[in-house]
């Protein structure tokens, strides 16, 4: 018993001061892409063609990036070969609407707070049921991390629960494989109304590396009405936490 207490003292208090204090992320962390404002049409076209995940496109005379499709590749050809973008250290990426993930310039509309009624219901207590629908377990692992003492999700009134019957919403990861589609829909149906849907990770948003898979659905698509999109492959735990707190009007 004394050994356990001594170890407890040594391990100390490790819960991060987030959101009061911003986290320090590793230098090499690849967060919010910054698009180069001055690109010739040729380079823009080459950059668009170079992304095999179709995360880049030309919108008039501007380059547009889809954060829902971007996998934040270390060897992003548009960044390395064409200088069309650089990855910043900014972990805040989550948005409320699919089109808010389409970025053209510095303005990035982060997730909105829920409407008054939903906020009144869920603002101080949000219970989520997580469903992995073809995920590679990295999204799942970094959501699990939110429950550890470093993040301590519980202090924000948010909790992952065991049953959809206890849940206020569903958090989906994975490209929605054919084999998980009906289990996902059944789980959603089992959650009492009103309910939220959160798409976490590139797979759930648009299929990620498995976009176009013969066994997948390219993410949630129109299967469920999504209230929060959390980009990343996988999203950093702070990206997810930031999104959840914005949804609940806590940031």
């Amino acid at each position: 018993m004394l050994t356990i207490l001594r170890e407890r003292l040594r391990q100390g208090h490790r819960t991060a001061k987030f959101p009061k204090v911003e986290p320090t992320l590793p230098e090499r962390f690849r967060g919010l892409p910054r698009l180069s404002p001055t690109l010739s049409p040729q380079i823009r076209a080459a950059a668009v063609a170079s992304c095999p995940f179709a995360a880049l496109r030309s919108n008039g005379d501007k380059l547009q990036i889809d954060l829902g499709r971007c996998l934040f590749c270390a060897d992003c050809p548009a960044a390395a070969e064409h200088g069309a973008l650089t990855f910043s250290n900014d972990y805040r990426l989550a948005a409320s609407q699919r089109e808010h993930l389409l970025l053209e310039d510095e303005v990035h509309r982060l997730a909105d707070r829920l409407g008054e009624r939903m906020l009144k219901l869920f603002g101080r207590s949000l219970k989520l049921r997580q469903v992995s629908a073809g995920g590679c377990n990295a999204c799942e692992a970094d959501l699990n991390v939110l429950g550890t003492l470093a993040f301590d999700l519980g202090r924000f009134g948010i909790q992952f629960v065991a049953s959809p019957r206890h849940a206020d919403g569903i958090m989906v990861t994975g490209p929605v494989t054919d084999n998980m589609k009906s289990a996902l829909l059944d789980t959603y149906a089992a959650i009492p109304e009103p309910k939220l849907v959160i798409a976490s990770g590139a797979c759930a948003i648009a299929g990620g590396p498995f976009a176009g898979s013969p066994e997948g659905n390219n993410g949630i698509g129109n299967l469920l009405p999504v209230d929060l999109y959390i980009p990343g492959c996988p999203p950093h735990p702070y990206t997810a936490l930031d999104g959840l707190l914005r949804l609940l009007g806590r940031r």
């Binding site: 590793p26 090499r28 962390f29 690849r30 996998l71 934040f72 590749c73 270390a74 470093a150 492959c233």
Partner: peptide, 21 residues
Amino acid sequence: GRLRGDYLNLMAELCGSRFGR
């Protein structure tokens, strides 16, 4: 739970991704 995150962060120091992407 906390220590696991610290090792993942070491991986991110190396390559920017906690999972070695």
